[in-house]
C-alpha cells in the first residue's frame, strides 16, 4: 500500500535517490533538508507513515530529529529509518538508543531500501 514517507537528507542527491526509489514503488514522498525542516514538514503533513533520515545534517541532525519525533505526541510511534554509512556502525547504536526503528546502510540499492521499508511498515 502506498505510504507517505518523509525523506530527510541535506544532500539533494541522496534525497533524489530515496524519493525516486520510493515514488517508483508508488509511495508519496515529502522531502526535508535537515532535522528542523523535517519537523516543520511533519507538523504540516498530517499522517506520515515513515521517516527516513540522514544523520549528519546542519541545524538539527538525524539523531536529534529522532528524539524530537519520539517526544512528539502525534508522531512518536512513527517508524524511523536512519541512513548510516557502512563505516559508522556506532551510529546505528546511537540511532537505536534515541529511538530509531531501523537503519539503512548507504550506499543503498533501491531493492534494499524497499525491503527495509517493507520491514518496518505494514
Amino acid at each position: 500500500m502506498a505510504l507517505k514517507v518523509l525523506a530527510v537528507d541535506d544532500s539533494k542527491t541522496m534525497r533524489d535517490m530515496v524519493s525516486f526509489t520510493l515514488r517508483s514503488a508508488g509511495h508519496d514522498v515529502i522531502e526535508a533538508s535537515d532535522g528542523r525542516d523535517a519537523l516543520s514538514k511533519l507538523m504540516g503533513s498530517g499522517r506520515v507513515d515513515l521517516v527516513i533520515t540522514d544523520v549528519n545534517m546542519p541545524n538539527m541532525d538525524g539523531l536529534a530529529l529522532v528524539k524530537e519525533i519520539r517526544a512528539n505526541p502525534t508522531h512518536r510511534l512513527t517508524p524511523i529509518l536512519v541512513l548510516t554509512t557502512e563505516a559508522d556502525g556506532a551510529k546505528k547504536e546511537e540511532g537505536r538508543a534515541v529511538g530509531a526503528t531501523g537503519w539503512i546502510v548507504k550506499p543503498f540499492n533501491p531493492e534494499k531500501l524497499l525491503q527495509v521499508v517493507q520491514k518496518v511498515c505494514p
Partner: peptide, 30 residues
C-alpha cells in the same frame, strides 16, 4: 490511521509518561 496492525496500540488519548512537556518545537520554514 493508515495502520492495519491491531498489535500496535494507538497513541491517541493516552496520557502516558511519554507525553512531552510544552509545545512542539517550532520549526524553521524553508
Amino acid at each position: 490511521e493508515g495502520k492495519a496492525a491491531p498489535l500496535s496500540p494507538p497513541p491517541e488519548n493516552i496520557p502516558g509518561p511519554l507525553q512531552p512537556a510544552g509545545a512542539p518545537p517550532t520549526a524553521a520554514k524553508v
